[in-house]
Computed example of a mutant assay.
Amino acid sequence: MAAGEFDLIARYLTPAPPSAAAGVALGVGDDCALLAPQPGQQLATSVDTSVAGVHFPAEAPPAAIGHRALAVSLSDLAAMGATARWCLMALTLEAPDEAWVAAFSEGFHALCDATGTALVGGDVTRGELAVGVTVLGEVPAVGALTRGGARPGEVLAVTGALGGGAGGLALWQRGERDLAHPLLRRYLLPQPRLAAGQALVGLASAAIDVSDGLLADLGHVLVASGVGATLDEAALPAAEGLGEALGEAAARRAVLAGGDDYELLVSLPQAYLASATQALAALGLSLTPIGRVTAEPGLRGVAAPGLGGWQHFGEAP
């Protein structure tokens, strides 16, 4: 007999013990979880839905799907400078495949453990394969990084490298299946920059995670802050091996608009750049200046017609 949703939840989606995490008064198994944020902290929360064939290949390793579904939501907490605390997960399956769920949960729980995130509830239902993950974190009441804090004269900088997510997707579509390939790992096993976001609190004025492409996400910051920007395209850090894998033109598109990188794009005063760079270097992560914030609206320094980034209901970039 195939396992029902309650069996799957009990066997694979319930942490053991369910209330071991700090701040969890009641975890998986009741109508609601009961959580206790720490005094003086604001609650930061975000939700993402990952749909097979849109956000990940349905035939991808289930452990990678589990990791990725949580990582993309945690990346939003990273962009706010928040500490991850809890998550809820809604899993939609076409059939109750226990082996698939076991591997999926292994990837999901491994990232929970690595980031200190407690799974405290969710749902399992029948339908097209999709994973919805809600994350909850904490950030000091006056410390959250937002999109609206960039000021003219500040430096724009990005963590890590760009284009790797799009490069990995392109390789997967060509038939590459070796998860040891660095570009494929960037796509299927992204690493949310939680520690980097926390290190940038008090240094950065604005931040966003690069999920839909550098140009699109930078655009959100410029609109929210009421400013413009000049980019130095030559300074943009491309993922290692991207040009060799895609060719020069496609690699440029991936860096500017490819999405799925989950790096942090920040605006910060020039006076804080050295401190921010040192703080991230201590985490083994680079911070690369890529431009300046300007008072004049608009984006200058890069010619990118048609490279608007990913939109679910827009034309493909």
Rank of each mutant, 00 (worst) to 15 (best):
Y187N: 12
S75F: 02
A114Q: 11
P190S: 07
P297W: 07
E244K: 09
G81E: 05
A282Y: 05
R253N: 06
I290E: 09
R193I: 00
T117H: 07
G4I: 03
Q41A: 12
A229W: 03
V255I: 14
D209F: 03
T277Q: 15
Q278E: 13
A238Q: 12
Q191E: 15
A235G: 08
A279E: 07
A36I: 02
G160P: 13
A195H: 13
E248L: 09
L218R: 08
T115D: 02
A25S: 10
L8W: 09
V255Y: 05
T134G: 14
S286K: 05
F56E: 04
W86Y: 11
A281L: 07
L188T: 04
A103L: 13
G175R: 12
Y262K: 03
V221C: 08
V210I: 15
H220S: 10
E138F: 03
L236K: 06
S267G: 14
A303G: 05
A249P: 00
E59A: 15
G143K: 08
G116H: 04
L171S: 09
A21Q: 09
E296S: 14
A207L: 06
P317A: 12
D30I: 00
Q198D: 00
G27D: 11
G4N: 15
A166F: 09
G4E: 13
G167E: 09
A25F: 00
A279W: 07
T117V: 04
F56Y: 15
E240V: 07
L77R: 04
P192A: 01
S105A: 15
E94L: 02
A44G: 05
G308K: 03
S275K: 14
F6S: 14
L194V: 07
P57F: 15
V221F: 01
G228C: 11
A224L: 08
L179M: 15
G175M: 09
G241R: 03
L214I: 06
A60L: 10
L129R: 15
Q191F: 00
G202L: 10
G137M: 02
R292A: 15
R300I: 00
S50Q: 08
P57W: 15
P297M: 04
L93E: 08
A99T: 06
L188Y: 13
V131P: 00
G259D: 10
F108M: 01
P39G: 02
P305V: 06
T134P: 00
A130S: 15
L299Q: 03
S267P: 00
D48K: 14
S46Q: 13
A276I: 04
E233G: 05
D232H: 09
A207P: 05
A150W: 05
V201I: 09
G116P: 05
P317W: 08
A114V: 02
R151P: 00
V293L: 10
G298H: 01
L242K: 05
Y272V: 04
M89E: 06
S275G: 02
L285Q: 14
A44Q: 12
W86A: 01
